[in-house]
Nucleic acid binder design. Sequence first.
DNA 1: AAGAGCTACAACCGCGAGCCA
DNA 2: CTGGCTCGCGGTTGTAGCTCT
Length: 443
Amino acid sequence: MMGRSASASGWCDEKSSLVKKGPWTPEEDEKLVEYIKRYGHGSWRALPKLAGLNRCGKSCRLRWTNYLRPNIKRGNFSQEEEQTIINLHALVGNKWSAIANNLPGRTDNEIKNFWNTHLKKKLLQMGIDPVTHRPITANNSDNIHHLYYLMINHILSSLAPQLLASSSFSGTCGSLANNNLMMNMNPWGINNNADLMRLHYSDAKIQVLRNILVQQFLSSTSTPNVEAAFNYLLPSYSSSSVHDHIDHEYSRVNINHNNYSPHLQGFGNGGAPIGFVPQNPTHASAQPSNLISNISGLLKALHDLDHSQLPRAPPVLVPSSGSGKSDKLLGYDDHAPFFSSTTGSNKICTNNNNNRDHSQQLNLGGSSSSYATPTDDHDQLPLYLVSSAAPSPESSAANPTVDNSISNTTYSTTFEAWGNPPDLMDHDDEATNHPYWKDFIME
DNA sequence: AAGAGCTACAACCGCGAGCCA
DNA sequence: CTGGCTCGCGGTTGTAGCTCT
């Protein structure tokens, strides 16, 4: 608010030059802690005088909330905390307080600083835009990592309905500021604001998964490995190769191996049956054009695996109550509306079940220092796919939270909605210029 | 050894939003 | 309904300490 006085804004009246600024002394800290311990903070504005501090109320509040209050965790961020921050940032952006709510003992200020000094740079080094959590795309359509990233993007997008069906997956508030390709393609028929919110939320989930994958596969080694990606996506088959996964899935849905196998052959790793991209990045099969073929083949395989679950209702908007309270992470509520505009700002909100520790619930942790190691711990990933007991379309349909207005979209698969990928096998040279990839590459 | 540059983080500031008279 | 007050969020700044040359 322009023209507002310093006093009204909560900061010290500038006329009062006696009010101290700058670093707090141990004596001041002691006074503040002692006072709050005995009386509580009450009105921050009135506190300094009562506590005998020559500070403004706002300075006292900041000192207390960011430094002095009990249970503040100091020191380095753990790997798990780091990952949680990145994942939540992909969901909510610079909502530091929302992120802090999910990291017990950490303050929004601390997280903000950590992001600005460490994580932002880390993502940039990984070729990821820290704002959008998408690859930095300038002139990198021939970049193997970028293409790999695009593939992940598409895989995740194709799996979006399943992801949405995952009740264990939860997120937090986000605005409409971020858009994605799914919006443009409108695969599920976006007819109203609630639909838009739903799609946005699915995008947020996908961005989280992107982060997981990118951190897992691009940060530590130079050569992306699709097999590792699949093993990570499908950890329930911990000892299986990519082909095994696909064999398994195909047998499960009774599709002949021969329908997809040709598309996957020739992408092996020097005769090894697995690995769409060889470990040696200079190998011919690692060249972008071949990678496109890999992607094409993979997409063909995925096409048939896509069971097109309709999305579950997104989390409920429950705006913060009271002055300045941060948005609470609220759970899925099968009986509440998708969306409300109570606060006047379009927000979806999330998660979670009665104040359960969000970082634990999301449980997006995992080593980011090595390739994915398939695990038997099915709780490690918030994916429909990690569960061997995948929800059936029937159970999904029985779920009262499925919005029938969305169900009217009758695509049997996501790919049908978007159009099948072209057969790029014979167009390697121009693969990256193919219109089908334009949407991805030009993002 | 010293200065420049960099990093980390505490603290400041502006503003939006809720509350209430 | 309006306007003042208060709180808290998020962007920015200041500076101490570290590293590099």
